[in-house]
Nucleic acid binder design. Structure first.
Lengths: 157, 157
DNA sequence: CTAAATCCTAGCGGCCCGGTCGGATTTCCC
DNA sequence: GGGAAATCCGACCGGGCCGCTAGGATTTAG
C-alpha cells in the first residue's frame, strides 16, 4: 500500500540494466521486458522518468537501448523511487518546502503543531534512511547471488 | 502518498481522546469532530474500526461517547494505523504470511528471490520501527506541550 | 529504404478515498 | 413513557490515480 508498481517495476528494470552493464552496447527495453515478464508499453513510461532524472541514458534508433546513467554504486534507491513516484511523504499534508520545514494542511493557524507531525517525521526518517542507504549496486549483487540458486536446488537439499 | 487521511484523522482522534481521558465520562464524537474541524459522519466510520480493534470503548445512548480502550502508554501507533489502514506493507506484493515469511507475486517460480525484496524489507523495517516505537502517550504529551486547552467531557457540565 | 528501436500523447476501466445521507438502535433525563 | 442525545449501520457517489493499451512520430544502423 506504500508504493505502487511503478517503483517495483522501475527498480527491477534498473537491476536488470545493472546486471547487463558489462560495458557493451545498450540494452533494448523489449529484452528487459521479456526477461522480467513485464508489459513493454508500460515500461516505456517508467523508463522515460528514469531518463529525465539522469538515472539511465538512451540511444535511439536500431540497435539502440538503455544504459545506466552512472555507476550503480552511485545510484540510491531514493533517487530511483522519487523519480518514479514523486517525493516520498508519509502523508499528503506532509511536505518539505525549501529547508526541512514541514507543515500540515490544517496548520493554517500559525505555528500550532499538530501531534501527528512528530509521528510522520519519524516514519519519513525511517523510510528515507532505508531508501538512501540502499544502492543499486547492492541490489544487483543480491540478484546475482540469488540467480545461482537454481544450481543449488539442483544439488538438492 | 503513504497513508491516507484515515490514519491522520484516526490519530488526531486518538490524541484528542487521550487528552480528554481524565477519568471522567466518555467524550461525544461530535465534540471531537468540532474541536478538530473534521466531518463527524466520516469519523464515525473510523472510530468504528478503532473500536473493533479494542483501541477505544464506547457507551451508547445519551451522554454516551468514547474512551480509550487502555492506557495511552500501551497504545502504539502501529496498532492505530493498522486498524484503520490494514497491514502496513511497502508494496502490494509484499505480505507476511504466518511467521515472517515474505513473498512477491512474481516469485511463482519457487524460491528465486527478487532483488526488490531486500529493499522492501528494509523499508518496512524502518516504518514499523517508527510506528511501533511511538505510543499514544507520547503524542498526547507532545500535543499538550504545544497547546494546553482542555477538552470538556460529557459529565463535566 | 527498411527495420528496429526510442519517444510522445491520448485514452480507458477499475478501484479506493473522502465524504454524505438516512435511518436504526440504545440510553439518559424528566 | 416520551423525547433527546448519542452510537451504530449500510448504501451511495464523485473524483482521482493506477495499470495498461493504442497509435503513431521520430531517430538510426545496415
Amino acid at each position: 500500500m506504500l508504493f505502487s508498481t511503478k517503483a517495483e517495476y522501475g527498480i527491477r528494470l534498473m537491476v536488470a540494466l545493472g546486471r547487463a552493464d558489462d560495458g557493451g552496447g545498450p540494452v533494448a527495453l523489449a529484452s528487459l521486458a521479456e526477461a522480467e515478464a513485464l508489459p513493454l508499453s508500460y515500461l516505456e513510461h517508467l523508463v522515460a522518468k528514469l531518463r529525465e532524472a539522469g538515472l539511465v541514458s538512451s540511444t535511439r534508433g536500431a540497435h539502440g537501448g538503455y544504459r545506466l546513467g552512472r555507476p550503480s554504486g552511485e545510484i540510491t534507491m531514493q533517487q530511483v523511487v522519487e523519480s518514479l513516484e514523486g517525493p516520498i511523504t508519509p502523508m499528503d499534508c506532509f511536505e518539505q518546502n525549501g529547508q526541512g520545514r514541514v507543515l500540515c494542511s490544517h496548520e493554517h493557524d500559525a505555528d500550532r503543531a499538530c501531534a501527528t507531525k512528530l509521528l510522520w517525521t519519524r516514519v519519513q526518517g525511517g523510510i528515507t534512511r532505508a531508501l538512501a542507504g540502499t544502492t543499486l549496486a547492492e541490489l544487483v549483487e543480491f540478484a546475482e547471488r540469488g540467480e545461482r540458486r537454481p544450481l543449488k536446488t539442483a544439488v538438492a537439499r
